[in-house]
Design a protein around this nucleic acid. Structure first.
Lengths: 340, 340
DNA sequence: ACTGCAATCGTTATCGGTTACGTTTCCAGG
DNA sequence: CCTGGAAACGTAACCGATAACGATTGCAGT
């Protein structure tokens, strides 16, 4: 009814109800020490003015806000899937979620983004945070759970069984008869990248295939980083018959380069990815990849964070989730299979 | 080096640099009136202590924060796609993004969620907000852009051409020979739901097929809402030969019910959805649906909000994006096609 | 009537920054 | 030497809310 364009604050309510802001605060927070009559008056004033407490002001003064935070570098399919899991875990838990994402994706600003965002939020706004694929260790006043933490981190985290996943992927290629298998690695500060490379090496070694360092390209999980690496691998006089990329995004770039250079997939080249993002099933050919449930990663991370915040912490500090191979159309026996 | 676990505040920096907090603030914000020597001292203190300004405290005092907000009710594929577009539009724009999502998905709390979230954020935290599929009109101190606004809203918004999309979808079914076409509507407070129903009616009328009200089920875009409606339609003695659902999520539930009741799709029943969420291509059979670029919706909404915030507003208040029909495997001619 | 204890409510310090305003310093010009 | 004014910096009010604390009131017990 009333022309309200300015935000209505607690003192507006107090004035309207004829009480002090302290009383309004008590009513809002359901604290003890307010008569029923006053409560009714304040409630009615709140209703009438359409008052809603300012998250900012509240969090500045209070220690607990019942809001959890999530910081992510960019916002691609991976993060989106994680988010769904996080929201599921938080559903009806009393915790709201704030996601902070910065817009300056690349460039110098990015260095240390997670610490920057974390400090901004965890100053007061959130009771705890989830950090997705950080670049380094972070410190924070409030609990932090990392999804896909940095290598060697002992902080609470959730991660997929990358070693097993990568091993299975390469074993699949070996089983098809491939012997020259290229690898495009991820950002090596991440534990996941490290494990995936380990899996690659382990599978080869177990099969008695020597690891050829020149078949390993060093990417950073960013799709774009894979393009020049794939080009180098495929323009060799003796290109590999298969390439295992440490992420689906990079695998797609391998497919792109292969198409460019006239390789047919899976005829001339088999490609395996890692992640199983939704797009992997849509491309032609469908991408053979290692499924890690990003949804589950988010779900578990949120559960862990919740229990850290409420202090009912009783699980191991690091949760490892299983992976599984999804065979689609991008892999096949090599043309010159040793033993068909 | 130093054991810092407590958050480092501006006064910590001030103490370390031997100046007042006012001076630190001036240095941080690059204001005039600080000698080069002092600037250097403060900078060094900031560096050493790892100080990062608190978003909360800053926003409380300041009007401009360079942070845009997005509030969404739940967090499914639709929202995730929108988010990717938003992030793209904001990339390197100087604006960061805060997403606020509440965890109480259903129940009485939900009523008016968008206003609640908006007030909490827009109090001070954000310079403007995007609201995804609101339940009602919202008021805010700062600019608001709605994605898929409520019916009759004249506020800035971005929406798909739902009328054309729905019309095309039903024309597709008519073209296959279907005459008894069921419809499962969306939440009717939304402009999109309204237009999709209009498209359904218009296509039928144009083709000279009378609209049978008993073939229309009233859902709310929530997948679960479609289950009982589909059951009713398909358990009739004279079930429709095709069902057009106003969202993919609801269409999936139709497929589920159809399977339950022994209908083969598309043999006994054709199904068309709306949205073209990523999952639609993955299901068996692939879902024929109307593609609306949720990515584009997000992208345009963010662009619009940016220009509203910076005051360079010069575009129409409502942006309408095109839709297109994606034919997959869930539609076919009816068994008893009038004229094959 | 006086004391003691709850219940109720207002006052005020505080959170971490920003900024209007006042004060000090310093140097140029008269 | 004195004055004026700008530059540099500190002081304190303020943003909106919370909570420790103090003040007031009502009422039972003596």
């Amino acid at each position: 009814m009333i022309e309200v364009n300015a935000p209505v604050t607690m003192s507006d309510v107090a004035r309207a109800a004829g009480v002090s802001t302290a009383t309004v605060s008590r009513v809002v927070n359901g604290h003890y020490g307010v008569s029923a009559r006053t409560v009714a008056q304040v409630r009615s004033a709140i209703e009438q003015l359409g008052y809603e407490s300012s998250l900012v002001a509240t969090s500045l003064r209070r220690s607990r806000t019942n809001v959890l935070g999530l910081v992510a570098h960019s916002f691609q399919s991976y993060t989106a899937e994680v988010l769904k899991g996080v929201m599921k875990a938080l559903s009806r838990s009393g915790f709201d979620l704030i996601i902070y994402a910065n817009s300056d994706l690349y460039g110098s600003y990015s260095e240390g983004w997670e610490q920057r965002h974390l400090t901004r939020l965890s100053g007061t706004l959130t009771d705890g945070c989830i950090v997705v694929t950080p670049w380094g260790e972070v410190r924070s006043r409030t609990p932090v759970v990392a999804i896909d933490p940095v290598r060697g981190s002992t902080a609470p985290s959730v991660i997929s069984d990358n070693l097993a996943g990568a091993t299975t992927a390469v074993e699949h290629l070996l089983g098809l008869g491939h012997r020259r298998i290229g690898f495009i690695a991820g950002r090596d500060s991440l534990a996941s990248a490290w494990s995936r490379e380990e899996g690659y090496r382990a599978a080869l070694t177990t099969a008695g295939v020597p690891v050829d360092p020149t078949l390993i390209g060093r990417g950073d999980f960013n799709p774009e980083s894979a393009t020049p690496l794939a080009r180098v691998l495929l323009q060799r006089p003796d290109p590999p018959s298969a390439i295992f990329a440490a992420s689906d995004g990079m695998a797609f770039k391998v497919l792109e380069v292969a198409r460019e250079l006239g390789f047919s997939v899976p005829g001339d080249l088999s490609v395996v990815g890692f992640d199983n993002i939704p797009e992997s099933a849509l491309t032609r050919p469908g991408l053979t990849t290692v499924d890690q449930s990003m949804y589950q990663l988010g779900y578990e991370a949120a559960r862990m964070l919740k229990s850290l915040v409420t202090g009912e912490w009783d699980e191991p500090g690091q949760i490892v989730l299983p992976t599984s191979l999804v065979v689609r159309d991008s892999t096949a026996p090599p043309k010159s299979a040793p033993r068909p």
